[in-house]
Amino acid sequence: MIETPLAVDVAFWFFGVASVVTAWLVFRTDSMVRASFYLLASFVNVGVVLLLMRAEYLSLILILMMAGEMAIMAVFMVMFMMNPAGLNPMNMVHQHRASVAGGVATFVALGAVGVFARFPDRPARPTGVTFALGQELLGESMLVFESAGAALLATMIAAIALASSRGRYGQADDGSDAPAFDPDRPFGDAPPRPVASKHEEQAGKEGADDMHDMRNMDHERMA
C-alpha cells in the first residue's frame, strides 16, 4: 500500500472520473471539433492521474503527444466529416444497443478483474523514476526501445505510401465517386455547390459581420 495525503486522493478521483466523463462526451457531443477536444481533455485527465501515480515522464509525454495528435485529428475531421458541426443532429451510429451492451459487459468484466483479483502488493519507490526509466530504456530494454523506433519509422513510410496520391496501381483517385450530400441519393455524385440563399438579403443580426459576410454560408458546419 502507498499512503497518500487526502488532497492527492481527492485529485485522483476527480481527474479519474473526469477522464471517463470526457471520454463519454466524445461520443455524445454533436460537433466533431468538440469531440476531438473532449478526447484530448480525457487524455490530459489521464495524464494528471499518471502524474499522481508518480509516472511523471509518461504523463507529460502523453499530454505532449496527444496535443499534437488532437490537432491533426481536428484537421482530419474537418477534411472528411460531412457533418462536423452538428447543424443536423449527429446520430451517426449503428448497432447501438449491441454496442452499449458490449461496453457495459466489458466494464463489468474488467472492473471485476480489477477489484477482485489479487495483485502483489509491491509499491514503487517514490524518487528517481525518470532516471531509472532512462537507464532501462538505453540499457536492458534497448532492444524494445529500438524496435519501437523502427516500428515508428516503418509506420511513417507506410502512412506516406498509403496516403500519397500515386500508388503502385496508378493514381489513387481513379474511378472514385463523390460522396453523398443529397439525402435522397445515398451514393450521389457531385455535391450541390453551396449557393447563396435568400436570407442574405435580410437585415443583419449584430455580430454577423459584413466585412467578411458569410451569413448565407455554411460556416457553422465547423461549430
Binding site: M82, N83, L87, N88, P89, M90, N91, M92, A178, P179, A180, F181, D182, P183, D184, A190, P191, P192, R193, P194, V195, S197, H199, R215, N216, M217, D218, E220, R221
Partner: peptide, 20 residues
Amino acid sequence: GHGGTGMTGGIPYGRPMAGR
C-alpha cells in the same frame, strides 16, 4: 426540429452544408 433535412446534407437553418 433542427431546421434542416437529411443527416449528411440538406439545408439546415436555411443554408446549405459545405460541399466538396
